[in-house]
């Protein structure tokens, strides 16, 4: 089946198997390996990307379902050399260790802040419940997201650029 979509602002057109998951499309067809896979039960959120600006676990979506839409992955988040405020906050506050959950976590946080520009700590924790991290104990991730909110991170990503 034909899909045509924008990934990180770039037009992509491919002939794909109907059963191909979006995460495999991104990793294996587009070569964007920043998006990771951490489970087979849609539990971990390592595969989270933005589709039309909203976070989606890309292992729960078929590539063909992304037809005509705008997908943003971790590779497309920074503005050239300038980190997105969420990326900047993760670095500043040590919100990552092994980095495996990080692309998904950052995308989930970006989406969370778009919806709730000024979340409470509890709202951040609720909002990230579907994204697992084994390294950080979430402490610095939560801190980073709150700091990013403070810095005004809720700027539209993807479609707007």
């Amino acid at each position: 089946m034909q899909v045509s979509l924008r990934v990180n602002g770039e037009e992509r057109r491919h002939d794909v198997e109907p059963r191909l998951l979006l995460v495999h499309y991104l990793r294996d067809v587009c070569g964007l390996t920043g998006t990771n896979i951490g489970c087979d039960t849609s539990s971990c959120g390592a595969c989270t990307v933005l589709v039309d600006g909203e976070s989606v676990k890309s292992c729960t979506m078929l590539a063909v379902q992304a037809d005509g839409r705008e997908v943003t992955t971790i590779e497309g988040l920074a503005d050239g050399e300038r980190l997105h405020p969420v990326q900047e906050a993760f670095r500043e506050h040590h919100g990552l260790q092994c980095g495996y959950c990080t692309p998904g976590m950052v995308m989930a946080a970006v989406s969370l802040l778009n919806e709730h520009p000024h979340p409470t700590e509890a709202e951040v924790r609720e909002g990230l419940e579907g994204n697992l991290c084994r390294c950080t104990g979430y402490h610095n991730i939560v801190k980073a997201v709150l700091a990013a909110a403070e810095a005004g991170a809720s700027q539209p990503v993807g479609a707007a650029r």
Binding site: T33, I74, A78, F90, Y100
Partner: peptide, 21 residues
């Protein structure tokens, strides 16, 4: 001191075994 490894992990993701082609 913030980590020197972070910019890469935050912008392109790590290079894990399954990422090798």
């Amino acid at each position: 001191v913030p980590r020197v490894e972070d910019p890469r992990l935050l912008t392109e993701g790590g290079r894990y075994v399954d990422d090798l082609r």
